[in-house]
Design a protein around this nucleic acid. Sequence first.
DNA 1: TTTTTATCGATAAATTTTTCTCGATTTCAA
DNA 2: TTGAAATCGAGAAAAATTTATCGATAAAAA
Lengths: 223, 223
Amino acid sequence: MNGKPDYIIPEPTLRRLPRYYNYLKALLNRGREVVSCTHIGKDLELDPPQIRKDLAYTGIRGVPKVGYQVAELIKNIEDFFGWNNIDEAFLVGVGNMGRALIDYKGFSRYGFKIIAAFDNDSEVIGKTFNDVEVLPLSKLTSLCQRMNVHIGVIATPDHAAQEVADMMIAGGIIGIWNFAPAEIRTPEGVIVQNENLAAGLSVLCKKLQMLKQSGKIRQEVRE
Amino acid sequence: MNGKPDYIIPEPTLRRLPRYYNYLKALLNRGREVVSCTHIGKDLELDPPQIRKDLAYTGIRGVPKVGYQVAELIKNIEDFFGWNNIDEAFLVGVGNMGRALIDYKGFSRYGFKIIAAFDNDSEVIGKTFNDVEVLPLSKLTSLCQRMNVHIGVIATPDHAAQEVADMMIAGGIIGIWNFAPAEIRTPEGVIVQNENLAAGLSVLCKKLQMLKQSGKIRQEVRE
DNA sequence: TTTTTATCGATAAATTTTTCTCGATTTCAA
DNA sequence: TTGAAATCGAGAAAAATTTATCGATAAAAA
């Protein structure tokens, strides 16, 4: 049948969809109204059937010989991810990475908003960055409960990550976006998304190293 | 696998290895000398045979009934990625993300060092962050050549990404770590690693959404 | 109108990646 | 010294993902 969400969507697809989204937004800005998988494939260096399959998960329908309506496609992706309903999140760890995340304006596009930050360094407690106030870590758990926040971002040094995660979970958080280079143990039912910059960096450097050694390798890089 | 690099290493393996590395470092700090795949698997929630296969790419050899020497394993991963030879890189775009990357001390662990930054905003040109000087963008290409730098980090807004990439490539850069949410077109032989925070965020939010919809998954946990 | 062409949607094949199986090896205990 | 238990390494099997194929359909051209 059609490509209605199966409740099981491949993770590679989930990671590619935001990429299509950025690309389509740029396309729309340039005045483009329709686009085919063939065309997208050329720009993104992906195979058209794969793109078709990915897009089908959002419920879009294309027209043979023409392709898809760009605006409709964008809307379908937004709805698919629920980017129109804002997800509110707490962030813990106001170091460089934490600051960068707080300051980054682009998340609003993805229905994501950091509404408060926490730290235990009195230097930053009480300060405000990008309208986000920094509160003492001790208030984290109770505020999660009171404000019914269920997404947490960990941007602490590695040694603090587990403790912070425990506090979050105690407060009812069920989704953790973890930037600390540490493993977090969580009970069943809590989703942890590890964001490991070192992984991407390592892949890049290793590919360069292999390129240098073996002379010539064709490499595509994902995401 | 018999240890020796096959010149074709699965990307998922490349992404997991730094994770093992962080984990092993923590293990070593706690005084642990040997570890088995079974043990690692429990902590990282991965299957032992997969871990064994991943580690085999680094050329390690384990001992039945005992496992691997933690210190040896760490060293093998470092050598595998070449983290002992520093890779020097230029960064372009000294906004929030750029600043966070410049300030991040942790990269030295991965043999990676940003040695200069570039921007075309006179507000930041001439300033120094974490010992990294910000230079005018116009000098990028010539300095790449002069200093023989071959890795570039793009942390600009999306609309500037392609132009910056072109300048880098003109200067001889062959590896680009791209944080801009934009597609970059490059000639053959240049490796682009896209780091898309939105992808990770989207995966997390979508999983939460699916959990909420389909899932009184946790009913059996309570009561 | 009819033919040609591009592209979709669905399915099948190929590839990649993960998981399983099993014999061999080493340590520990009896 | 021998037997039991744990774990490795290699290869096979299974699962997931990507790539290819093909009929159907809509638009454009003849």
